[in-house]
Design a protein around this nucleic acid. Structure first.
Length: 330
DNA sequence: TTCGTTTGACCCAGT
DNA sequence: TACTGGGTCAAACGA
């Protein structure tokens, strides 16, 4: 894309990390996980994040000669050989996302597993073929889909998820609404979205309220993004903000009767009949679907006076077990 | 001017 | 073949 706004360390991939609600800020002291299933590197990297179980199995980052820097809410793990840095830091006190700069060469990157699956299971499910520039349609993909069907033309798989309202906004992709239909048997309309980042992107998304529980949204995704996530400075800045949650724009949550009543007053447009009108855009904080917390993991490479994307030809994969020899400094 | 939303019309697969 | 309903298009409109 060549967008200047995207020079902030390149493209970022984000995934979920779940933590107990009562954990506020990463405590960088070593602790033993309550369930005691961490290995030493897990404890070292995220000592009080109990859901980081198996972290070292999920990430394989090559930091053979690394050191750790502790700050208020951040851990920096540096590979002094190839000038790589791994940042672990909280965005908000109780929210953590994990973000990885998209590598440029063919590499598999696995994101943190949801608490309901083991790291191994989750890796098998959710490995991203980043080198081939294939991105999941949306970041909910780390969840277990409610249903899996095929699209009408039978060309792609459609995964349907049940999401809470507040989880809808956690999407790194930008979407443009292209249709809305009333679905038989459901009091709520279905909204159709296409990826708006690229005209050639095939990713689509449908959002509708669950007829069983109007607090639950049924989100169906099909197709895959063939481009980088729409990250820019504005977007990243918003990630650090504490913007109040707003329902994604364009999602019409009025039940059918309400819509009909509203529309009968106008021959054409139903002006302002919508409850909400904001696009599902990346100005929202990203990537915490189904989780209460998030952690950022950034990998940047310092070359000269600027930061560049990590060249994945330089293996960033290895076990965190190899971080045993990491030294700490401030 | 650009981009996103709305919404009726149209397309098409399934029955 | 006709009907039904889900999916998509595109003009009109708004921000």
């Amino acid at each position: 894309m060549g967008d200047d706004d995207r020079d902030i360390g390149g493209i970022v991939r984000s995934c979920n990390i779940s933590r107990p609600n009562n954990v506020v800020t990463p405590n960088l002291d070593l602790k033993v996980s309550p369930n005691d299933v961490w290995n030493s590197s897990d404890k070292y990297l995220a000592p009080d994040m109990t859901s980081f179980n198996g972290l070292s199995e999920i990430f394989s980052l090559d930091f053979p000669i690394a050191r750790r820097e502790n700050s208020y809410d951040q851990v920096i793990i540096m590979n002094q050989n190839i000038n790589q840095q791994l940042y672990l830091h909280s965005i908000q006190p109780v929210q953590f996302i994990q973000q990885i700069i998209v590598p440029q060469s063919r590499t598999s990157v696995a994101c943190v597993a949801p608490t309901t699956t083991t790291p191994h299971e989750w890796i098998n499910l959710q490995q991203l073929d980043i080198g081939a520039n294939i991105y999941p349609n949306f970041n909910f993909s780390m969840m277990t889909p409610l249903t899996q069907t095929r699209t009408r033309n039978n060309q792609s798989i459609r995964l349907t998820y049940e999401l809470l309202q507040e989880e809808l906004k956690n999407d790194i992709w930008t979407w443009r609404k292209y249709g809305q239909k009333h679905i038989k048997g459901s009091p709520f309309p279905r909204n159709y979205y296409k990826c708006s980042t690229s005209k050639h992107c095939e990713a689509k998304k449908q959002i509708e309220k669950s007829p069983k529980d109007e607090n639950i949204f049924l989100v169906s995704c099909s197709g895959e993004h063939n481009h980088d996530p729409p990250m820019n400075r504005r977007y990243l800045a918003s990630c650090n903000g504490n913007s109040k949650f707003k329902l994604p724009k364009g999602i019409n949550i009025l039940p059918k009767a309400s819509i009909l009543n509203a529309s009968t007053s106008s021959s054409k447009r139903v002006k302002d009949s919508r409850v909400v009108a904001s696009p599902i855009i990346a100005t929202n904080p990203p990537l915490e679907i189904g989780s209460k917390n998030k952690m950022v993991v950034e990998i940047v490479q310092n070359k000269g006076d600027g930061k560049e994307k990590v060249d994945m030809n330089e293996d960033i994969f290895m076990g965190f077990d190899q971080l045993q020899g990491v030294t700490t400094s401030t």
